[in-house]
């Protein structure tokens, strides 16, 4: 199975890192992943879309974002921080309630394996 889930142009000094199998992810149930030294939160949405954002909650610096609730505001897919419930746009990582955003990572799925684009 080779399918392109979501692809954004990746900056030049980056590489694609394999993280897990798509089947490891349950719809709407976030998972944290360790990629190099970074903690990334992965979310699989219906329709096999996968989003990757930073796992660190900007407000508390705790690594918890993967454990928030997936939702939507209007047409945007969102994640709510499990600690203080700030809501972030999953695609861009921007904080919708005003505040510091999460980093967002390009994601793709190659042969059933989820890959995240990180700094080389």
């Amino acid at each position: 199975m080779t399918e392109l889930i979501l692809q954004r142009p990746a900056p030049s000094s980056t590489r694609w890192a394999a993280v897990c199998r798509l089947d490891d992810l349950e719809e709407c149930w976030g998972e944290a992943a360790l990629v190099g030294r970074e903690q990334i939160a992965l979310f699989r949405l219906p329709g096999d879309q996968v989003h990757a954002v930073g796992n660190i909650d900007p407000r508390t610096r705790a690594a918890v974002m993967a454990r928030g609730i997936v939702g939507s505001r209007g047409s945007l897919a969102t994640i709510a921080s499990p600690l203080h419930k700030e809501v972030y746009d999953l695609a861009s990582g921007a904080c919708l309630s005003g505040g510091e955003g999460l980093g967002a990572y390009p994601v793709r799925c190659v042969d059933g394996v989820v890959e995240v684009c990180i700094a080389a």
Binding site: A18, D24, D111, V113
Partner: peptide
């Protein structure tokens, strides 16, 4: 040590 998922590019997951 970080576990390597099944699939390609295991070398990229070292820590």
């Amino acid at each position: 040590p970080v576990r390597v998922p099944t699939g390609p590019a295991p070398g990229s997951l070292e820590d």
